[in-house]
Simulated assay, not measured.
Amino acid sequence: MSTSQVQHHPVDGFTIIPVLKAFLPRTLPLLRRAQFPHRSPSFYITATFSPGTAVESLPQCFAVCILDRSRRPETEGWLFSSGEIEGRCPELKNNTENSSGSGSTPQQCPDCTRAILSLAKHIPSLPLPDSVHGEDNITKLLTQSRSDQPSPGQTSAKQVSTLDYSRHITNPNVMVVGTIAQFPAEILNSQGLIRTDLPGMDIPYQKFIFRTSDLRHVDTTLPDGLRWGQVRPQDFELVRSRTAIPRKDKTLALLPSVAIFREENSGGDSPVAWGFLGPDGSLASLHVEPNYRGRGLAKKVTTKILNEQLKVFDEEEGKSEQGWICNSDVALDNLESTGVARSLGGRPGWVVYWVRVNLEKAKALP
């Protein structure tokens, strides 16, 4: 199958943002990543249409990929295909993804497939940067106890270890593509481009969509004895210890955050609850310490960070009547976070995955 021509767009997002806005909410992760102000020299915006193409002049089938491989083993790429939009592609009349993740495999369109595979084939041709997290982090990951690794066949996000999420880090031919929808993921998988021996298609996440206008009624007043703050560098070790997802200090330092502390803190004590916004604007690392659960703190943290911190991505958007559009990815087996999302008016959107793409195979595509 021949490939489509891949075009590079300006890294400030000037030419791609109007396109991404036209296809909201499906393009929301890419839109926020394009708006996020921190861009490394290895940041790329690629698409299968030329910069400056008006929305009404776009090809029927196209794809967009945003890349920053300098942050591995964290998410390195975000991919959107026009085939995700119901009714967009005449070849996909019955392409209705089931929001529970249990629907039938989506149909494939030759033009959509060509666009997605063109971007996949192009990625290995780009310079591979060193990871900003340094060799010391790689050494730490590789020397962790083997007992930290999950057993084969585990399909729960809660069962996968930090080591398993990160053990591809020394292989430059593996790249993490995050919050990818079922349609493009199935196309990559059908070509053998997704590493099935690493976490990926076996761990689905539910995408929840919010509007901050729906959150304005939520009371963020804290119970007596607690106060608001932000996550500090000295708190990063605690944050990382509460999740298997490989969060690195250099990335956490860039991300907007809120935290809850005990009022008597002298500045050196640890937070009791926290949350971040990821570089794609999603709610990330939401956590409440066990002794402080059942008091509505997760709901308050979510409300406060979405209402106050999304201005980093687009300040003007928040001034509209509906406020910001925002999103959260919740593992299907995470009932607690699912409950928080629903209680705040989060609407289930579609199922997404974090997949490890085999770039060696992508480079060999015809």
Results as ranks from 00 to 15, higher is better:
1 M>D: 09
3 T>L: 15
3 T>E: 13
4 S>T: 14
7 Q>W: 15
7 Q>R: 05
10 P>N: 09
15 T>Q: 11
17 I>S: 12
20 L>P: 12
24 L>H: 00
25 P>D: 00
27 T>M: 00
28 L>S: 00
40 S>H: 08
44 Y>A: 09
58 L>F: 04
58 L>M: 07
76 E>L: 10
77 G>C: 13
80 F>P: 08
81 S>I: 03
93 K>V: 15
95 N>I: 11
97 E>S: 02
106 P>G: 05
110 P>S: 03
111 D>G: 01
116 I>S: 06
127 P>Y: 06
132 V>M: 14
134 G>P: 06
136 D>K: 03
141 L>M: 09
141 L>Q: 05
144 Q>S: 09
147 S>V: 12
148 D>N: 11
149 Q>T: 08
149 Q>H: 12
153 G>K: 06
164 D>L: 01
164 D>S: 02
168 H>M: 03
173 N>V: 06
174 V>L: 14
174 V>W: 07
174 V>N: 05
175 M>F: 04
177 V>H: 05
179 T>M: 01
181 A>G: 10
181 A>T: 01
207 K>G: 02
210 F>S: 07
219 D>Y: 08
221 T>N: 14
224 D>L: 12
226 L>D: 11
228 W>I: 10
228 W>H: 13
236 F>A: 12
237 E>R: 13
239 V>Y: 12
242 R>F: 14
252 L>D: 08
255 L>R: 15
255 L>N: 15
260 I>L: 07
268 G>E: 08
271 P>Y: 09
272 V>C: 15
275 G>K: 01
279 P>S: 06
293 R>V: 01
302 T>W: 05
303 T>M: 06
304 K>Y: 04
307 N>L: 15
310 L>M: 13
318 G>Q: 12
324 W>Q: 01
326 C>Q: 04
328 S>A: 12
329 D>N: 04
334 N>K: 11
337 S>E: 08
339 G>N: 07
340 V>Q: 09
343 S>T: 08
347 R>K: 15
347 R>S: 11
354 W>P: 02
356 R>Y: 03
357 V>A: 02
361 K>E: 14
364 A>L: 14
